[in-house]
Design a protein around this nucleic acid. Sequence first.
DNA 1: AATGAATGAGTCTTCATTCAT
DNA 2: TATGAATGAAGACTCATTCAT
Lengths: 195, 195, 195, 195
Amino acid sequence: MARLKDENKRALILEASKTLFSKQGFFNTSISDIVKATNLPVGSIYTYFPSKDEIMKVIVEEGWKDLYDRLLQTVSSQESDESKLKAIIEKFLPEILKDVDLINILLSEAIAFTKIEEKIEVLSTMIYELIRSISKSKPTINGFNKRFIETALMVFFLGILNAVRLSRASSIDIKEADIIKFLKISIENSMDIKI
Amino acid sequence: MARLKDENKRALILEASKTLFSKQGFFNTSISDIVKATNLPVGSIYTYFPSKDEIMKVIVEEGWKDLYDRLLQTVSSQESDESKLKAIIEKFLPEILKDVDLINILLSEAIAFTKIEEKIEVLSTMIYELIRSISKSKPTINGFNKRFIETALMVFFLGILNAVRLSRASSIDIKEADIIKFLKISIENSMDIKI
Amino acid sequence: MARLKDENKRALILEASKTLFSKQGFFNTSISDIVKATNLPVGSIYTYFPSKDEIMKVIVEEGWKDLYDRLLQTVSSQESDESKLKAIIEKFLPEILKDVDLINILLSEAIAFTKIEEKIEVLSTMIYELIRSISKSKPTINGFNKRFIETALMVFFLGILNAVRLSRASSIDIKEADIIKFLKISIENSMDIKI
Amino acid sequence: MARLKDENKRALILEASKTLFSKQGFFNTSISDIVKATNLPVGSIYTYFPSKDEIMKVIVEEGWKDLYDRLLQTVSSQESDESKLKAIIEKFLPEILKDVDLINILLSEAIAFTKIEEKIEVLSTMIYELIRSISKSKPTINGFNKRFIETALMVFFLGILNAVRLSRASSIDIKEADIIKFLKISIENSMDIKI
DNA sequence: AATGAATGAGTCTTCATTCAT
DNA sequence: TATGAATGAAGACTCATTCAT
């Protein structure tokens, strides 16, 4: 009886919106743009989402959840803390760097739509615990407190994402491999470990 | 006289717009907002700038020029390459971190208004040359090519600016001192020098 | 059985709509509001009524019919003309004043949906005949023609209904008893009779 | 320098809106209707009024003020209380009955836009004081309290306005002269005076 | 018959820019 | 030159009605 809400349409709207928001920005993207991109009537956009804002919120929330789930999966697939850290750098990071649209949105407009700091805090703490656990026997890192290490992580995290983002948006030639390599060396140096 | 008065109005528009663009974003700021903030008639805005876009472009261009000039000044005020690098980190960086509005604009909306990559390329190259000169006698850095070092610089630069930006926009508690300290340690480590 | 169930739904829609139309006005009430109030699916509304307009029409027509039937009943339950008039004022009027929703609709939006003048003409004529019959032996009222008396009736009728309506919609404190008393005295005075 | 706001345009918008709101109702009148009726561009409507609601509010407020001012003028132009009352009935009332659009709006949609009860209270009290003053020496009216007389006034006031309103909206044939005559007789009867 | 997703014309309002004064 | 009213395309969103299931 009656048609059921079509999960494909919902996904289509989210996908098209994500691309548009990433390329043009949230405010520079009109519902009419989304209509053209999806080939759906205006009304249909509103049977799946109550507002343009809500589309953005869902993109951010679901995007982040997916990202975080993949991080947990990466971590839980490894035994030792060292291999966990290695997997984060060599498997998880390259994977998320592929979704430039999500990165773009997260780094630009997301602040207005979610408490991005809470999300980053979670991620930051998780990696900090890992590092602390690894470095227990190493004297190198012991001189630094939590806040300092989290600051470092934040700079790396934001630096890497923004570098990738900028390289796609402009003609700057940054290789993902170089970024990963740089991160690896930095961590190896500062923690005196070999990944 | 009348000329001076004009310059004041132009500056007033730029200043108010910079604040508004930074706080609310470009698209979310109306000419009417600028009118209210400057207490100037609408028409006057258009005698100084041909369009809203142009205001943004000028903010970015002049902001960048100012930033670059200050970098040149910092560098030229020092004798040795080591002290130049030291001054960049300890004098120039803290100084530009104060202009959060400019950083905000540069990192969010600027891409749509200027070839930001060209600007960053210039900055990156300058520091690279400095580093190469310092490290001539040091074996540590020799293994890395230009592209790799520039990638590292980019990650640091974008990471630092975005961390500061995020800490202002959200409740994340990041201390500027920690950022500077982190950068210093990283460079000392990777280049085997003492700043 | 199924027939009965249908009647219930029809009545439910009419009742909910009447309340909503009275409270919010016709244009300010959406089909979706009626859906929420009845807990019925949208489609069902349209199996019982061809359009939103039609719901309004039926409310007015059935409401009026009910009102007129009750008037006939009141009148036919009395023997003499004097007691008929007395019953209209003391039984019929207080009864219809209870259905404020219907009054509201009749006085505000009904004009656009039915020929309200025909309805009022019928009512007016009926009471005029009654008055004429009573006043045959009284000289007082003989000076007035039909049109004048009907005008008076109309002013009273509309005045009373609107006063009640306004007292419910605003904070004006009007007592139904005062209204009835006022009408009674006015008629007694002008017709020189005792009700 | 620059054009000044045009009082004529403001008046044109108010006039056209008043007619439309009266004929079609507020919610059934679109800004686009007002645009067509005034032959003004949409934007201009909004340079004179901040919203559709505000147009309605101004119509009600200015309409009421005008009406009240004329009442004061009528009253102050007469010496004795009797002639004041006479002037209200024979001069003021016929005059306001001409503005059927205003009456229509006041009686239908105004409730949602202003505290109509406060306005009516003012008017009612003024006439009550007049009546009380006149009837000091007459025993007839002394039996009635303030609330009762105000109820009577309300019924008359609303009855008269609505009767005129209905006679314009439908084909009911009500003569203004008959209404005035009816009111006069009623007052003469109940107060035992000759107007 | 029952259901509720689908539809798109229409709603109010905004706003960058122009131009009469 | 200075001013701010004039302009109308474009914005987000609504909603009565239809129709596929």
